[in-house]
Write a protein that binds this DNA or RNA. Structure first.
Length: 484
RNA sequence: GGGAGCGUGGCGCAGUUGGUAGCGCAGGGGCCUUUUAAGCCUUUGGUCGUGGGUUCGAGUCCCACCGCUCCCA
């Protein structure tokens, strides 16, 4: 570091500008590769480019230097010859350190060994890298640093950069998909006086001027459905939700969720929509609809996904019928599988545990589980054929829940009843039960048309599409304990 | 909450039964006009996560704490 700082000082002393104001690259590394990859070994061109990026590798060869320039698109070898840049130019290139940001000008060529390169005739330091970069071959391995100092991870580990580029394209593709179908993107409050729309504990905060307790939202659901009442017909929001819960390979306390609501649709329509959305997004973010997952092998996202009722799935994997079994029988099935259901006080929670324990890990290929118990779904519409279940589905892949959807309950009296059941559950010790939202009931009293709704986690989908095992590897700055 | 493992120079890693810390990369100096993690010669960096303890002596053994990873509830 001292040495690199000294170079900066010497440069300033000699009248150079160590921190130039701007740069003017004309191309990315990948552009040069795309234009000239067909060159014969040893061939040179007159095609000039100006590139900017970080110098990542250097191989000195006496009066020749090979270096590797990395930009967002990829890398390109630089071919620096003393006979081209002269003694001074060569010396100043030799003075650069790994990690320095540089701007280089030159012509496309291919070396005798067949490596496409830029034959450099001009170099300019754009910004000095004062600290040495992580090791060039193994990259940055230490998880603590990879996540805590993501910028270093992105510099040192190309794979990591690729994941986040894919995630960005994914979000963009989701927007396009929904806009093509006439959905309006909206923004609803992050700070909410009453939180709802999911079974979770909230983060609590306080507004000084209003002297009011506010919660960071755990879902966007109830606000978005108010917009359906208002006549917006098709809305979606891409937003951060906050849940004050444990951190695991699939949970981060703040995460990105998409919720969408479509008037005049039901959960079958929403299944079709999600089934079309996922391959559309996969194609445009990772370039394929067949994912190779590190733990589960090939996962095919296109085609029609199986629909299985939750009852059938639990019956097959857990050997217990949630339609007829008593609570004790459900509990016994869990105990037999070595799971202690002591914290699961309600029937809904027991069924949820059966799903998590027996069914979810085996759902590798995309699958819809449909028709959930009413206790677990206070905002979903009751099934006409069976009052114990609602018209709801969850989508799974890679042994993980991706999304959750239902035909929305729009009967205000029934909704109020469901809120009251939730209040009982809370009184019985369920601290994840829904809070009564009177204004939401009032909104329903003004009339919400038949509506289908869907929520899915952007982070989970990013994990699936990029084959990452941990949600922390698809979140740029995941939550972590920091030094006090 | 329970269990297992990890923490050693900027980065990636070694460190035998406790005996005074090594290797590779990066950095410095030198050689080299076709390298691909270039190579060769040479050289500078570390009170081994923190705090106690055992011992003549601790990176190594014991205790506590901090942080991370994985598995389980």
């Amino acid at each position: 570091m001292d040495d690199r700082r000294a170079k900066l000082a010497a440069m300033a002393e000699a009248g150079g500008e160590p921190w130039p104001y701007s740069a003017s690259p004309t191309a990315h590394a990948a552009d040069v590769v795309a234009a000239h990859s067909g060159l014969e070994d040893g061939a040179e061109t007159e095609d000039r480019y100006v590139l900017a990026g970080r110098m990542m590798l250097r191989r000195g060869q006496g009066k020749l230097i090979f270096a590797e320039l990395a930009d967002r698109s990829g890398t390109l070898q630089l071919f620096v010859s003393k006979s081209v840049v002269g003694d001074d130019g060569f010396a100043s290139f030799d003075d650069l350190d790994l990690g320095d940001w540089i701007e280089v000008a030159g012509t496309a060529m291919k070396t005798r060994k067949g490596e496409l390169s830029l034959k450099v005739d001009g170099v300019r330091l754009l910004a000095k890298c004062i600290r040495p970069l992580p090791e060039k071959f193994h990259g940055l391995v230490d998880e603590e640093q990879r996540r805590g100092r993501r910028y270093l991870d992105l510099v040192a580990n190309r794979d990591s950069l690729d994941v986040f580029v894919a995630r960005s394209k994914m979000v963009s593709a989701i927007r396009r998909f929904l806009e093509e179908r006439d959905f309006l993107e909206v923004e609803t409050p992050v700070l909410q006086p009453i939180y709802g729309g999911a079974a979770a504990r909230p983060f609590v905060t306080h507004h000084n001027e209003l002297d009011m307790r506010l919660y960071l939202r755990i879902a966007t659901e109830l606000y978005l459905k108010r917009l359906i009442v208002g006549g917006m017909e098709r809305v979606f929001e891409i937003g951060t939700n906050f849940r004050n819960e444990g951190i695991s390979f699939k949970h981060n306390p703040e995460f990105t969720m998409i919720e969408l609501y479509q008037a005049y649709a039901d959960y079958d329509d929403v299944m079709d929509l999600f089934e079309a959305l996922v391959p559309y997004v996969a194609e445009r973010s990772v370039g394929t609809t067949t994912i190779t997952h590190p733990d589960h092998g090939e996962i095919r996202l296109d085609g029609r996904w199986p629909r299985i009722t939750l009852r059938d799935a639990i019956l097959e994997q857990g050997k217990v019928d949630i339609d007829s079994a008593s609570d004790d029988e459900l509990r016994a099935a869990l105990v037999a599988a070595g799971y202690d259901p002591k914290g699961d006080t309600t029937r809904g929670k027991l069924i949820d545990a059966l799903l998590t324990k027996f069914v979810e890990p085996g759902l590798i290929q995309p699958t819809f589980l449909i028709d959930y118990p009413v206790e677990l779904s206070p905002f979903a519409r009751t099934h006409a054929d069976n009052p114990k279940v609602v018209r709801r589905f969850e989508a799974f892949a890679a042994g993980m829940e991706l999304g959750n959807a239902f035909s929305e309950l729009n009967d205000p009296a029934l909704q109020l009843e469901r809120f009251q059941q939730q209040a009982q559950a809370r009184a019985a010790g369920d601290d994840e039960a829904e809070q009564l939202d009177e204004d939401y009931v009032t909104a329903l009293e003004y009339g919400m048309p038949p509506t289908g709704g869907l929520g899915f986690g952007v982070d989970r989908l990013a994990m699936l599409l990029t084959g990452q095992r941990s949600v922390r590897d698809v979140i740029l700055f995941p939550a972590r304990r920091t030094k006090a």
